[in-house]
Write a protein that binds this DNA or RNA. Sequence first.
DNA 1: ATGGGTCCT
DNA 2: AGGACCC
Length: 660
Amino acid sequence: MSIASALAICPDLVIVDGEDLTPFRDVSKRLYALLRSYSWNDRVERLGLDEVWMDVSDIIEYNVELLNRHDLEHSWFCLDNKDPEKGFAFDARGFAGQVYGREKVGLEGPGTGGYEGGQAGLLRTKLLLASHLALHLRLKIEEEGYTTACGISTNKLLAKLVGNVNKPRNQTTLLSLGPDDGEETVQRFMGSHQLRKIPGIGGKTAAALSDYFISQSKPGSSSPPNPKEITVDDLLSCPGLSPSKLDSLLSSLSSSSSTGTGTGKHILSLLQGHDPSPVKPARSIPTQISIEDTYFSCPLVTIEQIRRELVKITGSLLKRMKTDLMDDDKKRWLARPKTLRLTTRPRTDPKEGRGYGYGRVSKSQGLPGYVFNNGNAHGDDEIVQRLVAETLLPMFRELNPLNPRKGGKEYSIGLLNVCVTNMDSIDPTTAGGGGSGGGGRDIKNMFMRAREFTVYDPEHEHADNTGTQPETEAELLEHSDVDVDVDVHAGDPSHDPDLNLDMSDTSYESSNGKARGSLKNNDNGDPSTTNHQQQQHPVSTIHEQAQAQAQADRDTNHHLGTNMSTNHYYFHIEDDDEVWDDSPDNVWNHNEEEPTEEDIDYDDLRDAEGMSCVNGDSDGDGDGDGDGIKCPLCNHFIPLFALSAHERFHSMEEFEGELD
DNA sequence: ATGGGTCCT
DNA sequence: AGGACCC
C-alpha cells in the first residue's frame, strides 16, 4: 500500500521518515566487520545491507583434520590457524540447527568415526562443521543484539535459498549427499520453488519462462496456471526445454543476461541448483555511492525547486563520500570517484510510470577535483553550491531539454539521483600489486614465498602439488568450497540505541526447542517447534539456545555423510522478509530411500598428518610458538601472528615512498 | 514503495 | 547509457 492511500484511509497516521538509512548502514558495517574478522580468506560478500555470503572452505578443511573421530562429542573448532586455543568446543555428533534433506549414510556411530566413510563422509562432515561454525557466528551476532537466519550449502545459490527454510531465527544445512542422491535432494529442493524465487531469475526472466510454460501446457487439461505459481519443476517438465530453446525465449530481454547468468544454459543450471560463482572478496570501497529522492506525489516543476533539491542531495552525498571513502581520521581519501552521474525520471506522458525504474534517464560527466578539497570554515557549502551550479544543473538541462512551456510549468520531475562512481582507489595494502604507479616491489609475493619456505613442510604438501610451489597460503587452503550465508534480523536500529530487548522480543518464537525438532521431532513435518523457554533477555537466550542446541545435537543421532560444502552465511537486519512457504513435504523429506553410491571426485583427501602444513606450528610441538619467518625485506625475525601486520607495514612504507 | 546497490551489454 | 538483477 502506498503511503498516500494509507493516509487516505487513516488520516491520523504518523509517518516516520524512513529515507535516512544511516543507522542501518552503521549496523550493517559493524556486523559485516565482525563476520569478516572470522574469515581466513576474506571471501565475505555482501548483498545489500543485510546479507552476506562467506566462503569458509579453508576454515572447514582445516577443522576436518583436527577432528578427533574417536571423541566427536568433545570436539574443538579452531578459529585461528595460528592459535589453537582460539575456538570453541562443540559436539560433532550432530548438526547445529536444522537440516534439509535425507537422513542417511550411517557413518557416524561410535567406532566408525566421522569421516571414514570415504568421500561421502568427508563431505558431510564438512557441512556438519560448517553448521557449527554458522551457529557460532550467529551467536556472536546475537551478542550484538541481532538475530539471524543462515543457510549452509555448497554454493551461493543453494546456501541463500536454504537459508530461507527456517527463516526468522534459525539455520538450515542443505544435506545433499553425493552425485546421485545428492543431486536428487538438490533437485527436489530447487524444484519446489517458484521461478521468481530463484536468485538470478528476476521479473522479466520469470515472466518469459512462465509464458513459455503456459504456451506449452495442454489447453484442455487444467485451469490456466497462475504465472506466479509456476515452479522450477513445472518448467523442467516441459518436453522441449533445452538451452537453445531458453536462449531464444530470453533473447528478447535486452542482452538476455542478468546477474552473472548468461543465457539458456546458465538459467538451466540455476534451475538445477548449480552456481559456479565464487564468493567475492570483501571490499572496503563501494563501486558507487548515490543519493536519491522521489517527488512522486509532488513533482518538481521549477528550476529553483530542482536546484534546492540538488543542493540537499549533493550535500548528503558529499557527507557519504567522506564517511565511506576517507580513512578514519578523515585525513586522506582512500578512493576518489572520477565520475558524476545525474539521473532523473521525467514525467511520463499519459500513463503512470509503469514498472520499477521506468523512464529513468541519466547523464555522466567527470567529477571536478575540487570536491576533494577540504571544505573551508563554512564546511562544504561552497563546494556543494558550486557543483550544483556549474555541473549538475547544466547536466539536468541536457537531460531535460524540452520546451519550457510558456505557461507555468517547465518541468515535472519525479526523481532525482546523484551518484559518484568509477572509483580511483588508493589502497596502501594493495600498493605492491596492481594498485598504483609502476615500479614497486611485489611485497605480497615476497611474503608469500617467505611463508612457503619457512612454514610449509614439503612432505605435507598437496598430492597434486607436482613440481610447483603452492602459490599462496590462501590457495593452499582454498581447495574445496564452502560458503556460509547468514541472515540477521533485527528491529529498526534507528529507533533506539537500546534495541537489543526489542529485537529479541520480535524474534523470540523460534529458539531452542526448535533444533531438537530438527530431524527427530519433526515427524509431523512441522519444522518450527515451540520454544520451551521463555526468554527475558537476549543474552541468557543465547546460551540457553546454544545449550539446547547441543542437547538437540545429541538427540538427533545424525550420521555423517557427505557434501562439498559451501556455507552461505546470510545476515538480515530487517525482519519483514518473506518466510519460506513451508508446505511440510517441501521442507522435510522422510522417505527412506536407498543410500546411493557416493562417488564424488574429491581432490583433496589427505592423510591426517597433512594438516601440519597449515597449522603454523612447524616445530610440531603443538603450541604454535617458535614459528615465524625472516622478513624478506628487513631480515628481522617475525613471529607468525605478527606477519600480516608486518607485511602491511612494508606495504605502507613503500606506498609512502611512492608519493615522494 | 523506497532508497539504495551490483554487474553486464 | 541503460537494463537486468539484488536487498
